[in-house]
């Protein structure tokens, strides 16, 4: 699973270096990943969290939507392929990268209570266009290669990290249902905005 999650970023980044994917292609890939994410959320994640007898699940979902709209303010919509490149920026856009990293980290959390692999593949597909957009953005911003490579590697490690932590850290495993509900909210926001 770790390998699959990292592989999607590798595929995305390398495809930018080898072929220059057209805007149209990225858009269609994004649309597909948005639809996939939405249906995984509705068909698998939602029924799963509502199996538990918790009254506040709905609140957590709404909270997730709120979190994502805050994150989106900082990431300026990289998750759905909106990047406005300012050529020759010297400064690394930390806020954008941190919120994108958080976003990737959150995605890894619900993976640990998934028994079938549809969410894993949804995230796999979802991360390909995002890493294409991220890599294109970094290259066009003329950062040093070392900076670009380390940012992409960090980004690739975030989802596996979320998966690992939600599996091992006690608080995360204890409140996995609530966390998954928050992430359902995030997924609902992302996928509907993409579509």
């Amino acid at each position: 699973e770790f390998f699959v999650l990292i592989l999607s970023v590798i595929i995305g980044s390398i495809s930018v270096l080898i072929t220059k994917p057209s805007k149209k292609f990225i858009q269609i890939l994004l649309t597909f990943s948005g639809a996939y994410l939405l249906s995984v959320t509705i068909l698998h994640l939602l029924p799963e969290v509502y199996e538990m007898n918790t009254k506040n699940i709905g609140l957590f979902i709404l909270f997730g939507i709120l979190i994502q709209s805050i994150l989106e303010n900082f990431s300026k919509g990289v998750e759905h392929g909106h990047v406005h490149v300012h050529k020759h920026v010297e400064k690394v856009p930390w806020l954008l990268l941190i919120s994108l990293g958080l976003h990737a980290f959150f995605e890894g959390i619900p993976l640990s209570n998934e028994h079938n692999h549809s969410l894993l593949w949804a995230i796999f597909i979802h991360k390909i266009p995002i890493s294409i957009v991220l890599t294109t953005f970094l290259i066009q911003s003329k950062f040093k290669n070392i900076v670009i490579i380390s940012i992409v590697i960090l980004f690739a490690l975030m989802t596996p990290l979320g998966f690992f932590i939600s599996n091992t850290v006690y608080i995360f495993t204890k409140y996995l249902t609530e966390l998954t509900a928050i992430i359902i909210g995030i997924f609902l926001h992302i996928s509907t905005i993409i579509l």
């Binding site: 649309t31 948005g34 639809a35 996939y36 249906s39 995984v40």
Partner: peptide
């Protein structure tokens, strides 16, 4: 039209 197909495909894959 391509986007419509992409959406339907995305839905269909998880449903199956």
């Amino acid at each position: 039209f391509k986007k419509l197909i992409a959406i339907l495909l995305g839905f269909a894959i998880t449903w199956v």
